[in-house]
Simulated assay, not measured.
Amino acid sequence: MYIATNQETCEKIGEVLSAQADKPQNIRIFIAGMGCSGPSFGLGLDNINDNDFTESVNGVNFVVEQSVFDTVGEIKVEWVGNGYSVQPVNVQPSACGSCSSCG
């Protein structure tokens, strides 16, 4: 598995983990929904399950369900000043027009 991130992002996540010491210390990357442009992702504190991939980057343990990784591959997690951006590295959004919500 491969999680692309940077030191600043890991430091911000570390702050969250420190404040949540009584919760799991793993950052789960999950698909939060699907839209015209593909999946949208979320982050959450969670335990490691049997069907998960894990990767430790700069002291942060990222967890992804195998089926999610099989679907999207490499994932980029970045701190963007007011939150986190989570996107597949090699998947480009599809052209709009295939659903009714597109104008």
Rank of each mutant, 00 (worst) to 15 (best):
residue 12 K to P: 00
residue 15 E to G: 12
residue 102 C to G: 04
residue 14 G to F: 02
residue 84 Y to D: 04
residue 50 D to T: 12
residue 10 C to D: 04
residue 64 V to Q: 07
residue 92 Q to Y: 07
residue 78 E to P: 00
residue 43 L to F: 04
residue 103 G to S: 12
residue 85 S to N: 12
residue 73 G to L: 04
residue 40 S to F: 04
residue 88 P to R: 02
residue 43 L to I: 04
residue 13 I to P: 00
residue 11 E to C: 01
residue 37 S to F: 04
residue 97 G to I: 08
residue 12 K to V: 04
residue 97 G to E: 07
residue 42 G to Q: 05
residue 16 V to M: 12
residue 74 E to R: 12
residue 77 V to D: 03
residue 73 G to E: 06
residue 35 G to V: 01
residue 29 I to W: 02
residue 91 V to W: 06
residue 74 E to T: 07
residue 74 E to H: 09
residue 83 G to N: 06
residue 96 C to A: 11
residue 8 E to V: 09
residue 81 G to R: 10
residue 38 G to K: 00
residue 95 A to R: 13
residue 74 E to N: 14
residue 33 G to W: 03
residue 77 V to I: 13
residue 92 Q to K: 14
residue 40 S to E: 12
residue 77 V to G: 01
residue 79 W to Y: 12
residue 44 G to F: 00
residue 100 S to I: 10
residue 71 T to S: 14
residue 91 V to N: 10
residue 78 E to N: 10
residue 70 D to H: 09
residue 79 W to H: 05
residue 11 E to K: 13
residue 49 N to E: 14
residue 67 S to M: 14
residue 30 F to Y: 15
residue 21 A to E: 15
residue 101 S to T: 11
residue 17 L to N: 05
residue 61 N to T: 14
residue 53 F to M: 10
residue 103 G to T: 09
residue 65 E to G: 10
residue 15 E to W: 08
residue 37 S to G: 10
residue 3 I to G: 00
residue 2 Y to T: 12
residue 46 D to T: 08
residue 18 S to Y: 14
residue 62 F to H: 06
residue 15 E to A: 10
residue 91 V to G: 01
residue 34 M to Q: 09
residue 27 I to N: 02
residue 97 G to L: 08
residue 8 E to M: 11
